[in-house]
Every structure is written in structure tokens, then in C-alpha cells.
Nucleic acid binder design. Structure first.
Lengths: 220, 220
DNA sequence: AAGATATGCTAACGCCGTTAGATGTCCGAA
DNA sequence: TTCGGACATCTAACGGCGTTAGCATATCTT
């Protein structure tokens, strides 16, 4: 155990501690409570120390996102273990909604917050050189849609897998994000968002599929 | 023309000028550029002056929202002049999407930004005492849905007008808000959001309506 | 002309993200 | 064993933010 090794270990430990503190603040009081100064307070260091581990606040939040995105992707992947592509889509929708409603703060951070410019540039570079891992959650959905199209499960005029995937993503995202932002608006008699989202997914799949009447409705 | 009258007029003129400056900043550089100090600069006053016209920044933004909400509501109302309730829903969806895509900044402010607590409390009070105008855009949609249900246009298991209205709102909101936030993510081959949204509305209506195959598809 | 009222300003407070520069502390080599 | 450099950490500050207090000044009313 050389000294540089130990130092590196301590470095990583502090980095993890910082991320955890940020996560705690975030979960307890929402994104607006996540402040470089408060994170520093929580780990009992002064603010500049954070900049030895993260280029800036946006990089710190990105690191947080990536951890949660991995979790999210894993949940979706478990849901995608179905042979029938239509049922696969339905189950992915269900798990998507459940993740969003169980972790609304994370969902807001992941999908309802504008990307920092830097991240976009980084990703564009990855895509350019083909390094993109291609195993994104979106790809799971798009592939299921493509399978539906290839095996003739959809009405013939729905033939663009990317577009239909975006249709379905939009469906679940719309219901949960409306709920997360506007649930407290008392002008509207909100229904339980889980049921609402399922109803939309079911209706959309009914509309997409050949032979109308739904195969297996989302029950729970 | 008494002097107090003139002063009041000047007061309102300055108020309008402030709002316009805020709107200009907002349209030119997005919400994060709308700063009390920058607004003050634009109208050639010092920042404290703004507080003689608006309680705080959130009240100023709310005033801006309300103007745009009126515009939005008017656009939707024009679209709702259709006898057939299903076609009415389809047209409202179309105009909703067009508004969102033509004014993405406004859409972000109106529907993709968390409400300040104060506003929620104010609305709750209105609802409590029954002062709510009931002519909200959401009500337009819900009433069209209720008409569909009452006249037996929907499958019998879709019987909750509130829920179905929330399903349809979620559909259009999902597609346009995903696009507005994530269009620049190069990992995804984005399709034109207008067509995507129309496809979702059509599919959902196909799924909701009795007698499957769409009546009149959204063409343009 | 004098007093009241409204208008606008300067200056400041306490937050924020971030950076520069000083200080100390430990490690490896002479 | 002591010296020099690398590293960790701190204090202090900059410029921005929303917001408020207190003062000057201009304008109306009597």
C-alpha cells in the first residue's frame, strides 16, 4: 500500500462523499437546495475543495445523473424481458411511470431539466466517433417498436420505428411530467397519474396495433 | 385630466414597459437571462423601481404568464369551434402543439416550470370560494371529452372525462416538452415533433373511439 | 409658500458559483 | 535527517443575483 495509492483512495472516498451529500440535499429539499456551499458544509469542507473533484456544479450534477440513469436503465431492462414486443412495450411503460413517480426529484433532474451545453457537445463528439454505447434506454424502446413493425403487429401506416418510439416516450413522459409539475394546481381535479399513464399507453397501443381491442390491459 | 389621473396613467405605462422589457429579454435569451437588474437596465431605471410595480420577480413572471395564457387560450378556443367532439379534440391538439412549437420559450414558462408556492395558494383560495372562472383551456378539453363520452363515441371503459382529458393533455405535452428540452441531444434521431404529436393524438383517439379506424387523420 | 406625497436613487445585505493566492502538511530524495 | 516539492485545504475576494432600508428630490395640494 504505497502512499500515492492511499491518497488516491482517500480522494475517491471524498468524491463519493460529496456526491452522496449532494444527493441527500437533493432528495430532502429538491434541486434548488443543491448548492456548492451547502454541499461543502455537509461534508465539512470549504467550497473550493469541491472544485478539486468536479470541474463545476454542472459536472457534479451530471455525475449524479449518470448514476441514477444507470439505475433507471437497469429497471427498464428488467421490464424488457418479455418475448411479445407489444407486451414488452406495455411493461416498459409501466416501469417507466413507476420510476418517475417513485423518484420524482430524480426524474426532474434526468428528464425535465435543460441539458448544459457542455454535455451536449461531449455527446455529439461521442456520436461522431461512434463511441456511443447504443444501449440507451431509448434504444430498448425503439427496438421493441421495430420488432412490432417487422412482425406486422402495427397498422401499416405506422412504419417509422424512431417516430413511434418517440410517440410512446412522449406519452409516458407527458403524463408523469405534467403531474410532477402541476399536481398541486387546485384548478384541476387530478386523477392518479399511474392510471392515467397506463390508460394512455393502452389507448395508444390500441390505436397502433392491428386488431383493435387490447390484448392485455395494464391492470396493476 | 387631473394630475393623479395622469400619474396613474404614467404608472401603468411604466408597468407595461417593464413587462415588455422582460418579454424581450425572455424571447431573445431565454428565461435565465430575465433578471431584475437586466430588466431595470432595459427600461433605464434602477432595480428597486421594479418593486413598486411587482411584489417580487415571481409576480412579474406570473403577470407575463397570464398575458400569454390568454393568447394561448384564445388560440385554443378558435380551434374548438367544431361540432363533432372528436374532431374538436383533434383540432385542439393540433393548435396546442403549434403554439408550443412556435413559442417554445413561452411554453416552457407556462407549462414546464414549477409554480411558485404563492400562486398555488392564491388559486386554492379562488377555488375555495368558487371564484374560479371555469373557462380554463383545460375545461375546453374536458368538456369535449365529456361530450364524446355522453354521445357514446368512446369505448365504454373510458368513462371518466377528467382522466381521459388528462390522458390527452399528457399526450401532447409529452411530445412537445420532450422535444423542447431534448431536441439537441444527438444520441437520438429526432423526428419532427409536430408529426410525432399528431401521430400520438391520432393513435390515442383511435384507441379511445368505438369503431377503430380513424375518422379524419390530422393531415397538416 | 409649506407641508404632504410619491418617485427614484444609492448603498447595502445575504445569497450564489467560482477563482487566486497563501498556508500548511506530508512524502520522497539527497 | 533534513530539504524541496507536491498536494490538500483554507481565507478572501470577485461579480452576479433578489431584495430592502433610507435618503433625496420632485411634484402635487392647500
Amino acid at each position: 500500500m504505497t502512499a500515492p495509492e492511499r491518497r488516491e483512495r482517500e480522494r475517491q472516498a471524498l468524491r463519493a462523499k460529496i456526491l452522496q451529500a449532494a444527493r441527500d440535499l437533493f432528495l430532502a429539499h429538491g434541486i434548488e437546495a443543491v448548492t456548492m456551499r451547502k454541499i461543502a458544509d455537509a461534508v465539512e469542507y470549504t467550497p473550493p475543495v469541491l472544485y478539486a473533484h468536479f470541474a463545476d456544479k454542472s459536472a457534479l450534477l451530471t455525475a449524479l445523473c449518470e448514476e441514477d440513469l444507470t439505475l433507471f436503465h437497469a429497471a427498464l431492462q428488467r421490464a424488457a424481458r418479455r418475448a411479445d414486443p407489444v407486451e414488452r412495450i406495455r411493461r416498459m411503460g409501466k416501469h417507466y411511470v413507476d420510476f418517475a413517480l417513485e423518484h420524482p426529484h430524480h426524474y426532474r433532474l434526468l428528464f425535465m431539466t435543460p441539458f448544459p451545453e457542455e454535455q451536449i457537445a461531449a455527446k455529439a463528439a461521442q456520436v461522431e466517433e461512434g463511441t456511443t454505447q447504443g444501449q440507451s434506454s431509448y434504444a430498448l424502446l425503439r427496438d421493441a417498436v421495430a420488432e412490432c413493425i417487422a412482425t406486422g403487429r402495427f397498422e401499416k401506416h405506422h412504419k417509422d420505428a424512431e417516430r413511434v418510439a418517440q410517440v410512446l416516450w412522449g406519452a409516458v413522459h407527458g403524463v408523469v411530467s405534467l403531474w410532477i409539475l402541476h399536481a398541486r394546481n387546485p384548478e384541476i381535479e387530478w386523477r392518479a397519474p399511474r392510471a392515467t399513464a397506463f390508460e394512455l399507453v393502452d389507448a395508444a397501443l390500441d390505436g397502433l396495433c392491428i386488431g383493435a381491442a387490447a390484448t392485455s390491459r395494464t391492470s396493476s
